[in-house]
Structures are given as structure tokens and as C-alpha cells.
Amino acid sequence: MDAQNTTLSVQLAVKTIEVRKSLSRIIQKFDGLTLEENTDSPWVDILVLEIGSNPSAEFETIKALLQENVVGNLFLTSPKTTADILLPALRAGAREFFTQPIDVEEVKAAFQKVKDQAHNQNTVADQTVNKGKIYSVLGAKGGVGTTTFAVNFATSIQARDKNKSVALIDMNRLVGEVPLFLDLETDTNWEDIGRNISRLDAAYLQSAMVRHSSGVYVLPAPGKVDTEKLLPAGSLFQVVKSMRNFFDYIVVDGGMYFDENLFKIFTESEQIYLVSILSLPCIINVRKLQQSVFAANGVTNGRLRIIANRFEKKAQVSLAEANKIIGTDISATIPNNYALSMTAINNGKSIADVSRNSNIARAYSQLAESVADSGLERAGGIFSWFSKN
């Protein structure tokens, strides 16, 4: 991970107005730092705390914060620099102590030190852990079964090898339905993880993501748009890219909406599955969308696979006609069995769980086999121990 992509959250627990203003200005101008205003945030990379009129009580609070693992780095500031303040502060776990008035260069140096350490940790992880593989799923139109494909593709990959770790990420803000398809409940989504990306490790992911009975770990999309919590551009891409350190396979349900994050994820994807049905409007959309996908830097024709969902041999548009309109061959077909698919969705199960020997389940199993047997050699990654829990 490049140094400029290491972003740390900073929260200020400072009552002196001038000190708070001075620190805020430094943070706002410091590349790679974001000022965390949400006091209910489950994690903050750096907390700057002002010691007030009751130091002993505040030092106990400091110890509790560090013990609860909700603060990565603790900086203290106080108008007093006497030994009865400095020594207990260091013993309590403070990494830096800022005198008042604030010395701008001193504060910037402290922030830079933490940022460099975070960058070095990420670099070591990038160099020592084999990368998992990303498979993106995109819909030609709404209602063609994009989420059904993503869910059953992910669970089928997991079924191929229980010792591998599989993640399923729902990128559909507002309309994301992956948890509903798998009968899962969770309070955490990729926006929460994106706001704490510097904390991204196996333990944090284990607590943040929800695990389906198949073994697949699910990361839902936010359920609402909150303008105060929107992530900086490209943050979701950094979440997905970083998760390659912890998972063998990552399936991304991209829905049918292009944005900067999805284009960047395409460049990191082993395969991009463009899901369609054999109707003329969908086939025309496929032709347009594949050109948009190819516009992403580094995405070539061999990485885009077109999937004909709900396939029937007697469809009004034949495979041959569809191939001619698109200009390339459809890679695979998923048979049409609407009743079975709806039974699986309504019961929060995968299609294989409902009918393992059905033609649809076999089609997904064949797709998973082409992926799971592609020679990915990993010892399960950092995340492999989750499968044992």
C-alpha cells in the first residue's frame, strides 16, 4: 500500500478552544489524516486528549480506553508540564505529550511517525501474504439475478474447499440484498470498515463481518445514505484490495451501477462476470457495458465473462444470435428454474442447500470448480483460522 493511501482517523477530546482549533487545522492540512467527529465510533487510530482539572480520573479513563482496544494511539496535551502530569501520562500509555500552546511542527512530526508505522505494517503484510483473488459480478439490468448469481457463486466456491476463506461483498448501497438472500443480520457494513481501514486485520474483520452457515463471510452495503458518513473517493476499493490479505476468494456483488470504486476493483479482478438474460434489451446493454468495462485500465476481453442467466433453449433470442449481437461468446449459462430460485431466496438459503442435485446447483458448482481449481496456492491466509472456530 502506498504511503498516500494510508489514512488514519483522529479524534479530539480537547476543551480549550484555541488548542482544538490549532489541532484541527493541522489535521485538515495533513495528507492521510481524517478528523473523526463521531463520538460513538467503535475505533479511532489517534485520540488526542486534553488533561484537565482531574488528572487522576482522566488517567484511569486512558487505561480503560487502551484496555478496551478502541484507541490505536493516544496523544495527550496539557497546559502543565510538571512531573506529576508527565510521568503518569507515560505510564498510562500515552505515546506523545504536547505542550500548550501547540507547537505545530512537534504535532506534525508525531502524526507522521504513526502514519509511517502504519504504512510499514501494511507494506510488510503486502510482501508476506499471498494475495487472494477477486471476482466481480455486474448486472446488465436490474432484475436479471445479479445478487442471486453472486450469492450462489460465493457459496459454491466455499463448498469446493471448506479450508479456504471466501468473502462476499455487497456494493449495492440502499438496495443491497445479500444479507436477505442468506437470512443474515448484521449492524456493520463496508462503510464502517472503510472508516477504520487502518485497523483492518483478521481480528477486526472477524468481529465486523457476519458468517453464513456455508462458511462465507458477508460484508453488507450501508442501508442508508448519510452525507456525514460518506467515504472519501476510492475508499471502498482500498477496503476490497486490503481484504485480499485475509481471504482466498472475494466475490463482489457490484449490482448494475458503475462508479470509481467498481472500475478500480475491475482492474484487480481475476474475472468479471456480466450477468444477463437472453432478451434483446439486456443483450444490447451487455454490448454497451462490455465496452465500458474494457475502458477500465488493464481489463482485457479474456477477463470478462458473460453469463446468460435463466437460460432456456427455446428463448426468443438464441445463444448464437446473442453472441453475434454482443460480438463475443457467452461464457456460461445458468438454467431457468424460477420456483427453485425463489424458494432459496425466500428461505434465506443457497440454491444448493435447497436442491443440491438440481441443474442450477450443478451449473454453479461447475463455475466454482473452474475458479477453485485454478491453482491458487495459499495456506488459508491470515483468515484461515476462522474456519476452525
Results as ranks from 00 to 15, higher is better:
residue 161 D to E: 07
residue 73 N to L: 00
residue 148 T to P: 06
residue 338 Y to H: 13
residue 283 I to A: 04
residue 146 T to K: 13
residue 317 V to C: 11
residue 156 S to K: 08
residue 386 F to N: 06
residue 308 A to H: 01
residue 119 H to A: 10
residue 44 V to M: 04
residue 41 S to L: 02
residue 292 S to C: 01
residue 302 G to S: 15
residue 142 G to S: 00
residue 204 Y to A: 14
residue 21 K to T: 10
residue 271 Q to R: 13
residue 89 A to I: 02
residue 33 L to P: 03
residue 107 V to E: 03
residue 315 A to R: 07
residue 294 F to K: 12
residue 162 K to I: 11
residue 282 C to I: 03
residue 260 E to Q: 12
residue 279 S to G: 13
residue 224 K to D: 07
residue 312 E to F: 07
residue 73 N to V: 06
residue 66 L to E: 03
residue 119 H to N: 11
residue 189 N to F: 02
residue 303 R to T: 13
residue 201 D to F: 02
residue 344 A to M: 10
residue 374 S to E: 12
residue 274 L to G: 03
residue 33 L to T: 01
residue 245 N to G: 07
residue 133 K to T: 10
residue 271 Q to W: 11
residue 142 G to I: 02
residue 351 I to H: 01
residue 53 S to F: 12
residue 70 V to L: 02
residue 92 A to L: 03
residue 69 N to K: 15
residue 99 T to V: 10
residue 270 E to Y: 07
residue 288 K to D: 14
residue 379 A to I: 07
residue 7 T to E: 10
residue 158 Q to Y: 04
residue 93 G to R: 07
residue 293 V to L: 15
residue 122 N to A: 15
residue 155 T to W: 07
residue 99 T to M: 12
residue 48 V to S: 02
residue 342 M to D: 09
residue 112 Q to R: 12
residue 350 S to D: 10
residue 349 K to A: 09
residue 206 Q to L: 12
residue 217 Y to T: 05
residue 146 T to C: 14
residue 253 D to E: 12
residue 42 P to F: 02
residue 326 I to S: 04
residue 266 F to S: 07
residue 152 N to D: 10
residue 263 F to A: 09
residue 96 E to S: 10
residue 105 E to R: 15
residue 379 A to Q: 14
residue 212 H to R: 07
residue 158 Q to H: 09
residue 220 P to S: 02
residue 25 R to L: 10
residue 359 N to E: 15
residue 355 S to N: 14
residue 216 V to W: 00
residue 208 A to C: 11
residue 231 L to H: 01
residue 281 P to I: 05
residue 364 Y to A: 05
residue 8 L to I: 05
residue 386 F to R: 11
residue 297 N to Q: 14
residue 126 D to H: 06
residue 155 T to C: 13
residue 73 N to A: 04
residue 240 V to W: 05
residue 144 V to M: 04
residue 389 N to A: 11
residue 77 T to G: 08
residue 267 T to L: 02
residue 87 L to N: 11
residue 104 V to M: 08
residue 22 S to W: 00
residue 269 S to N: 09
residue 224 K to G: 09
residue 170 D to G: 09
residue 2 D to G: 13
residue 289 L to C: 01
residue 363 A to D: 00
residue 181 F to Q: 12
residue 303 R to G: 03
residue 340 L to S: 10
residue 91 R to N: 11
residue 53 S to E: 15
residue 55 P to I: 08
residue 46 I to P: 04
residue 277 I to A: 07
residue 87 L to T: 11
residue 317 V to R: 08
residue 177 E to P: 00
residue 316 Q to C: 00
residue 29 K to G: 03
residue 35 L to T: 09
residue 362 R to M: 14
residue 211 R to F: 12
residue 191 E to P: 00
residue 235 S to L: 02
residue 90 L to K: 10
residue 259 D to M: 04
residue 191 E to T: 11
residue 293 V to R: 00
residue 312 E to N: 13
residue 139 G to K: 04
residue 121 Q to C: 03
residue 35 L to M: 05
residue 94 A to P: 08
residue 249 Y to F: 15
residue 107 V to P: 03
